[in-house]
């Protein structure tokens, strides 16, 4: 019997090593807050964190960054007045800025076995300095490589024991693409359904991309 449920958060996060690349979804909602708290308690350090933004002064991303255990942040957006902004300004954290669509596509490429792709996004900007560009169909394009994670922390609304998932409304955001891009994909789910309980045509993230699921009842995503 395939059963990806684990007993608790420490079991879900067991084995995350120092130096890991951690994929963390979320865009106003859809961040697995309990897993982030668990990662902070678990203690892995020297992490590379991949997220859409560097977060604010409070909240899961800020809390993780404030531990000082993130060596490098890869994201599309850092607010000036945030934990991330101050860590970078103080030289205490590396920062790689990636346009949001390129970030999503690099993650998708990692999950899909695409070894590189060219895109016009960012090709005529400072982000292209020192990097390979090429004119394709008359447009200047920038070479981009996949972005894979050692672990993805995923937020779900419903899950079954095969790891099939649904996500609420816009809380879907980066969850499906990050789930497919990591060696170890760990899910926190608000609800547990029996196998077949999610109508097959309504599965947003199929279980093939999921390794461990932990039930976190009552856990609201970031409002």
């Amino acid at each position: 019997m395939i059963d990806k449920f684990v007993a608790d958060v420490p079991a879900a996060l067991a084995g995350i090593a120092d130096g890991a690349v951690v994929l963390l979804p979320g865009f106003g909602n859809g961040t697995p807050e309990t897993l982030v708290e668990g990662l902070i308690a678990q203690g892995a350090t020297d992490l590379t964190l991949v997220a859409n933004s560097g977060g604010r002064d409070t909240g899961p991303t800020a809390d993780l960054l404030a531990t000082g255990r993130v060596r490098k942040l890869i994201c599309s957006y850092v607010r000036p007045d945030s934990v991330a902004g101050r860590l970078f300004a103080a030289g205490k954290m590396e920062l790689e800025i990636v346009p949001q669509g390129t970030l999503a596509e690099r993650l998708r490429a990692a999950g899909a076995g695409i070894q590189a792709f060219y895109t016009p996004t960012g090709a005529d900007t400072l982000l292209a300095e020192g990097r390979e560009t090429r004119i394709i169909n008359g447009r200047n394009c920038l070479l981009e490589y996949p972005l894979a994670g050692d672990v993805a922390l995923i937020d779900a609304w419903e899950a079954d024991r095969w790891g099939n998932l649904t996500h609420r409304e816009s809380a879907r955001n980066f969850n499906p693409v990050m789930a497919m891009a990591a060696k170890l994909t760990v899910v926190q789910t608000r609800h547990v359904l029996p196998l077949g309980g999610i109508p097959p045509q309504n599965v947003h993230t199929p279980g093939v991309f999921v390794h461990r699921v932990v039930h976190v009842p009552g856990q609201e995503t970031t409002p």
Partner: peptide, 8 residues
């Protein structure tokens, strides 16, 4: 501080 987001 860098604020690219989805603009590019």
């Amino acid at each position: 501080v860098k604020q690219v987001g989805g603009a590019m």
